[in-house]
Design a protein around this nucleic acid. Structure first.
Length: 505
RNA sequence: GGCGGCGUAGCUCAGUUGGUCAGAGCACACGGCUCAUAAUCGUGGGGUCGCCGGUUCGAGUCCGGCCGCCGCUACCA
């Protein structure tokens, strides 16, 4: 059975969950749901990143310990994902003991292998940013470009990861795995960075203590990024003894990392190199997505332009929000998010096309077939046209591109609407012609429910139920359900209220 | 500056290896229908495929130049 281990980045708890986080998480969820539906064994991981100076400082400002602070913040993400009906199998927090152990094992192994060495780092440091700047990044010669604060020269004795030693191996890995990083433009970006020459990177800090202690030198903690990346290993039992440890072999390296374009370097350069240094394979797949923009700008805490998933769900419903995130912005591109845009797509795709099709079919089945759905016809226009479109949708989902899967599903909806218009069963007397027309439409709806179920599980299940089918879409066995002719008829069809009431504005 | 990408109908974008490639969806206009959530169906776009030149029997599709926009160019969640 094929295995699909999908991850989102772990989100930094100091930010509030917004639609940008939701975008990535919903995409990962849809892919996870699709793979489950086709019978793959799936493990879907998300979580929160909780170490680092910003968290420590925020906790201090609120007069609580860092642990108390993160205990307060992490649930906001878990709750946001519950609201969005995210089907993650695990939710990892980097402050958990299991993670501390995995980080220490993983980086300890790299140290034992000789890829981590002690050295001195000197640089221009902004205390507010908690980061070093290169001289040419500074404003007025000596001020931080973000805060305008005068930077200090700081010298720290740190442990360095010998990234420079992995340049050739990384290039070889990229060339041997041309599809490991997608889209291609992002792969090229990472590869050209690597080819431009790699420097060693400092991976520990002595200036803070809110982090995972370095096992061989407890005056240091690991810099938050090197701790964070390891979460992908922690959750599947890296380095553990016993039964849970065995799961690591099961899921690694068949992992599918979904990440935003701002963290390419960490995932596409440092992370594969660290895996190599620790003696495990680099991740099999890294899929890079773009940003959701508001008014042309990235959503961020500092710009106060964040939209929260909860607001949109309250307004449009969870499935409409999920659909919009998946359909409107192709993975890999940036997208503009606006209420106007959501309303437009909601009306066109969900209310007019899909919702209305469900309603009109149910009504005519009620008036012409006494409310009992006729079986799918073996031939006819839909029988000829739809299978190819189903294949197209399947291909889109299989490529990890939900917008393509959904786009093809909507072609099925259009075909079904057009065919109804052609035959006009509402004008005809009950009989074979009416039965075939409505049976075809019901079969199209059955297939559409299957194809959209990763995006809109609730809606898909409701369509399934209304057309008289038992269970939920996808539980009838992988693949088979996607063939034309699965709707056997003879079951009650229910009209029900509008699935997606049309919006006025 | 260097490397990479982009510029196709009002909008968002598809367009494999050059020859029905000038397209889709949305929006808009007109017509049909009235089963349906005033939904749906059909028809319509005369778009210099950023500009100039070249290769070719033939180029959004290859080559050169130019203009405009964007990304990356290291320790920024």
């Amino acid at each position: 059975m094929p295995r699909f281990y999908v991850t989102t980045p772990i989100y930094y708890v100091n930010d509030a969950p917004h639609v940008g986080h939701a975008y990535c998480t919903v995409n990962a969820d849809a892919l996870a749901r699709w793979h489950r539906a086709v019978g793959d064994e799936v493990f879907f991981l998300t979580g929160t990143d909780e170490h680092g100076q910003k968290v420590a400082r925020a906790a201090e400002e609120h007069g609580v310990t860092a642990q108390e602070w993160t205990d307060r913040l992490a649930p906001r993400f878990a709750e946001a994902w519950a609201e969005l009906e995210i089907s993650n199998d695990d939710f990892i927090r980097t402050t958990e003991p299991r993670h501390r152990q995995a980080v220490q094992r993983f980086l300890g192994t790299i140290y034992d292998n000789g890829w981590i060495v002690k050295d001195t780092y000197a640089g221009l440091y902004c205390v507010d940013c908690e980061q070093y700047y290169a001289a040419d990044e500074l404003v007025d010669g000596n001020r931080c470009p973000v805060h305008g604060r005068v930077v200090e020269t700081l010298e720290e004795e740190n442990y360095f990861f010998r990234l420079s030693a992995f340049q050739d191996r990384l290039v070889e890995w990229y060339e041997a795995h041309p599809d490991a990083v997608v889209p291609e433009s992002k792969r090229n970006e990472a590869l050209s960075f690597i080819k431009g020459g790699l420097q060693d990177i400092s991976i520990t800090r002595t200036s803070i203590d809110w982090g995972v202690p370095v096992p061989w030198d407890d005056r240091h903690v690991f810099y938050v990024w090197y701790d964070a990346l390891v979460n992908y290993l922690t959750a599947i039992g890296y380095g553990e003894e016993g039964p849970h440890g065995a799961t690591f072999e099961r899921w690694w390296p068949a992992v599918h990392h979904l990440i935003g374009k701002e963290i390419i370097r960490f995932h596409c350069v440092w992370w594969p190199a660290m895996c190599m240094a620790a003696g495990i394979d680099p991740p099999a797949a890294i899929q890079v997505h773009g940003w959701l923009l508001v008014g042309g700008e990235k959503m961020s805490k500092s710009k106060l332009n964040q939209i929260t998933p909860g607001e949109l769900i309250a307004d449009f419903g969870v499935d409409a929000v999920r659909y919009h995130l998946l359909r409107d912005t192709p993975l890999g591109s940036d997208g503009e998010l606006s209420v106007e845009g959501i309303v437009a797509r909601y009306n066109a795709d969900l209310a007019n096309n899909l919702g209305n099709l469900v309603a009109r079919v149910a009504t005519v089945v009620g008036s012409k077939c006494a409310g009992v759905g006729p079986a799918a016809p073996a031939s006819g226009r839909l029988a000829r046209a739809v299978p190819g479109l189903v294949d197209e949708a399947v291909a889109g989902w299989a490529r990890g591109l939900p917008h393509l899967g959904l786009e093809a599903a909507w072609k099925v909806i259009r075909e079904a609407n057009a065919e109804l218009e052609r035959v006009e069963p509402w004008k005809a007397d009950p009989g074979p012609v009416v039965d075939d027309a409505l049976g075809g439409a019901l079969e199209a709806l059955r297939l559409v429910a299957l194809l959209v179920s990763p995006a809109m599980p609730g809606t898909a299940a409701e369509i399934w139920r209304r057309i008289g089918l038992p269970g939920v879409p996808g539980d009838g066995g992988p693949g088979h359900e996607l063939a034309w002719g699965g709707y056997r008829g003879g079951v009650g069809v229910e009209k029900g209220p509008a699935l997606f009431p049309r919006r006025r504005g």
